[in-house]
Structure formats: C-alpha cells, structure tokens
Design a protein around this nucleic acid. Structure first.
Length: 480
DNA sequence: TTTTGAGTTGTTCGA
DNA sequence: GTCGAACAACTCAAA
C-alpha cells in the first residue's frame, strides 16, 4: 500500500459493497477521498428529471451516512467535473483517480478528455468496469463485432465465465483527520418540487436495494415468468432505480439469482436473468452505437413520416387518450414516477403507432418523469417499440390496447387503481368503456366525453394508418 | 465464402 | 372458442 492520496469519484455506483473501483482504491492507497460531483450540464440534453433528482438526493444522503460510519467523508462539489477534479488534486496532492466507467456517450467522452488532462498533470486514472456484467468491449461475436440481436447475445453471455463474484464491502477508513471542503447536499437543488416526489414506498440507497432484492427472491409463491406481465400484481422486481444509481451491482443480482436457482430453482429465475441481460444489451448497444439516444439505429427511419401533433402528445402524456390501459399507465407515471414494464410497451406503442408521434418525444417524456430514467434502457426500449432499434419488433406488431388490457389486467384492477373515474365499470367493459350500454355507463357514473374521454383515435383506423406509414419507408416507391 | 436457421413482449382473419 | 397462416423482408450469427 502506498502513501499516496487517491480520489474515488462516485457517479452511478452509489454503494460500498461490490464496488470494483472503490475496493481497488481503498486497497491501494493510504488516504482515499470519496467525491461526488454535481455537473448535470455535462450530460448533453439528458438532464435528470424531478424524480431522478429526488432519488439521487436520498441515495447520496444514505451513502454519505454509510461512509461516515466507516470513517470516510463524502465530499460533494458542483461545477464542471474537470475543474472540480483539478482543484481537488491541487488541494490534496492526490496522485490517482479511481472511477467506474460510464457508457452514456456524453459522460464517456467527458471522462476520456478529463483523464487525459489529469495524466498530463501526473495524475493516474484507474477506470473499472462495474456498471455492466461484462465490459462491452470484451463481448463480441465471432466476426469481432458487437451483437445486434438479443438471443445470440444472451446465449453468448451464458457461455462466458460468470462475472467475478461479489467484492466484499470495504471496512476500513482512511484515518486522516482533515477533509477538503465540500457542499452540504441541500445546496445541490435536488428537491425542487416536493409535490412531485415519487410515491410508492421506495427506499433509495444500498440497504434499500439489498432489501428489495431479498424480498423479490424470497416471494414464496412468485413466478416471475408468469407474473411479470401483470401490472395489477406486484410481480416485478422493482429494482430498476436501484440499478440505475448503482446501489446494487448487476453482478450481485446475477449471482444471488443463480445461487437461488441451484438451490430450489424458483420458476422464472432464468426469465429474470434474461431481463438483466436486456439491460446489459442496452448498455452495450449504447456504447457501440453512441448516436442512438438521438438518432434511429436503422437509418431509413430518418425519413419516417412522424406527425407533429402537440395536442395528441399532451393527451397521451396526461393520460387522456380514452384507452384505459394507456391512460392508467400514464397516470401511474405522472403520480409515482414509475410504470410497469408491460404498460411501458403499451403506452409507447400507442404514441408511436396509433398517434405516429416521434419516439424521441416519448423517450424525452419518460426521461423527465421516471424515477429510474436510464439512458441505455430508455433508448433501447423506445427504439425497439418504434421499430427502428436493434432487433426491433416487426413493424406490423401493433398493440391493440383493448386486447392488451384484457390479457394483462383481466379484472381491471390496474385501471381502477389509476383511473378512479372508471372504478364503477364492470370488468367486461373496463378496457373499452365506449362499448358499454348507456344504462351500465349511467349506473357506473361514467359520462363518456366528460368524466372520461372517448377514444381519441379509432384502433382499426390508426392501425391501418400506421401500417401504411411503415410500408412507405420500408419499400420506397420505385421511381417511374 | 456461402448457406442456413432464426429472430422478447402481436394482431387479424378465415376456417 | 381454437387454430394456423399471413403480415415482409432483412440481417444477423454461426456452421
């Protein structure tokens, strides 16, 4: 162990356990300065939204307390990362920077530049792969390129050695008395609008993340493969925000699930790992195709005839389309900052296919509202739904919002929860109120067009319009 | 190099 | 109600 001072830069790895770069820093230097930098302007147009900031505040507060307990202090600063690091190096004489790599293009580019600058001043940087199970550069097909189809990617992951097992939580503090100056967390302006705090019983932070995983794995009657598509039941892991902020590592989840799998083989363990692999796939894609957060992955979609429809977008975002399963999802998002995965698909499909509104408007809205907003996942999901992404759904797969509602929310419990104005409707009509007889509507206190809107588009008509639009770019008319 | 099999999450239609 | 086919063609990944 050297006498040198190192800086450990926390970013999307707000945890002490199984943290590759943090463990390396504590193992190699006598004095480690834990740092967090608030510099949202360096992330391009993807500034954290109100829910994301709320979570960040809670998570940093939690992390700070955990660090104190082991004799370390989290130094919080704001401003351009390069400038913050420069001055901290000057103040402390640090000679090394430890960090876990980020894969969002803006952040990755910024990091590279900043590490080069530090190297010129004699400060060595040690970037680790920690956010993903495997380093995207190391996962390649036989031709040496990145995978562009999920299933071969998944099979390849299963053929690899397991990612190194959990790195133990460091126990030791630095033992130095004086710490460089930092800002109190409250100065970061993360809690702007308390009225919009996410609800839903979240526990941000490392302990909360571990508890959530434990709960998920111990559900006695759980069958993830079956229940994950039921928004009316709590069948999903709800680990997404914890994963986004790195309060738990995908490595740890991978191992915990496999461990359980070997023991009692809960139904659905493999299905869950597949979802984790989708997250992995998203990160690898964003790394290899850095333009895809803004541009369609399939080039020909650049000329897709998206409609400019401000009013349509507003109705979608507010949950007033007249299709209950869509509106329930959008209200859940608005009220809690989270939406069930299946409903994300249905609402995204509705925006891009029924309304023909650009997927970027949708991804931007989700980004601004989600507590788990994650550039890799959000980008991949929207491009996949819109048909322009890697391994996307065929364009003729257009969700029928009524059928999807009936299949995945058969009793209407999900709709009733988020659309109380429809709560009185019998299950038979809950996903298509306009088909209910007048007497049923009256008895249920539903006044279509007033207490709840009529469908803003006719499904069959919208479907034909979408198919025509997609056909247009896939087989351009030959010139005469 | 060429060939071959395959591809998260669907819907509709007609028998 | 249930079933299979059509919806399109393309590109990927591996043999």
């Amino acid at each position: 162990m050297s006498d040198e001072t190192s800086i450990f830069w926390f970013r999307q790895d707000l945890r002490l356990g199984d943290n590759a770069a943090l463990t390396a820093a504590l193992g190699s230097s006598r004095r480690v300065i834990p740092l967090y930098i608030w510099s949202p302007g360096e992330e391009g147009r993807w500034l954290p939204g109100v829910r994301s900031r709320w979570w960040l505040y809670q998570s940093l507060s939690n992390l700070s307390a955990s660090l104190e307990a082991m004799g370390l202090r989290l130094i919080i600063r704001n401003g351009p990362a390069a400038a913050v690091l420069d001055s901290l190096v000057r103040e402390t004489g640090a000679s090394a920077l430890y960090l876990n790599k980020r894969y969002e293009p803006a952040a990755a580019g910024r990091d590279l530049e900043l590490m080069t600058g530090l190297a010129a001043r004699g400060v060595e940087s040690y970037p680790f792969n920690d956010t993903t199970l495997f380093d995207p550069e190391a996962v390649r097909n036989q031709a040496g390129g990145p995978f562009k189809v999920f299933t071969p990617f998944w099979r390849h992951l299963l053929s690899l050695d397991d990612p190194g097992w959990t790195i133990p939580k460091p126990r030791r503090g630095s033992g130095t008395g004086s710490w460089p100056a930092g800002l109190p967390l409250s100065r970061l302006d993360l809690l702007k609008d308390p009225a919009r705090n996410p609800s839903g019983g979240w526990s941000p932070g490392e302990q909360g993340a571990l508890k959530a995983l434990k709960r998920f794995l111990s559900e006695p009657s759980s069958n993830y493969a079956r229940d994950r598509d039921r928004p009316d039941e709590a069948g999903t892991s709800r680990l997404s925000p914890h994963l986004h902020f790195g309060e738990i590592s995908p490595r740890r989840i991978w191992h915990e699930v496999r461990k359980t799998e070997e023991g009692s083989a809960p139904p659905g363990a493999e299905a869950f790992l597949r979802q984790l692999a989708w997250r992995e796939f998203s990160y690898h894609l964003l790394h290899h195709f850095p333009g895809t957060a803004e541009e369609p992955w399939r080039r020909q979609y650049g000329s897709f005839p998206w409609r400019d429809d401000r009013d349509g977008f507003r109705r979608w975002s507010e949950g007033a389309t007249g299709y209950p399963i869509v509106d329930a999802g959008m209200r859940e998002l608005l009220e809690t900052g989270w939406m069930h995965n299946r409903v994300r698909l249905i609402t995204a499909s509705f925006l891009t296919k029924h309304l023909l509104i650009h997927w970027l408007e949708g991804s931007g809205w989700f980004w601004s509202q989600l507590v788990d907003a994650d550039l890799a996942n959000n980008t991949m999901g929207w491009q996949w739904t819109a048909g322009c992404g890697a391994d996307a759904a065929p364009y003729f797969r257009i969700f029928n919002p009524v059928q999807q509602g009936r299949r995945h929310d058969p009793d209407g419990g999900y709709v009733r929860r988020w659309l109380p104005e429809l709560a009185g409707l019998p299950a038979r009509y809950i996903h298509a109120p306009w088909t209910a007889p007048a007497a049923v509507l009256a008895e249920s206190k539903v006044n279509l067009g007033h207490s709840y809107p009529k469908p803003m588009v006719d499904h069959a008509e919208a479907r034909r319009r979408a198919l025509a639009a997609y056909r247009q770019i896939l087989s351009p008319p030959s010139s005469p």
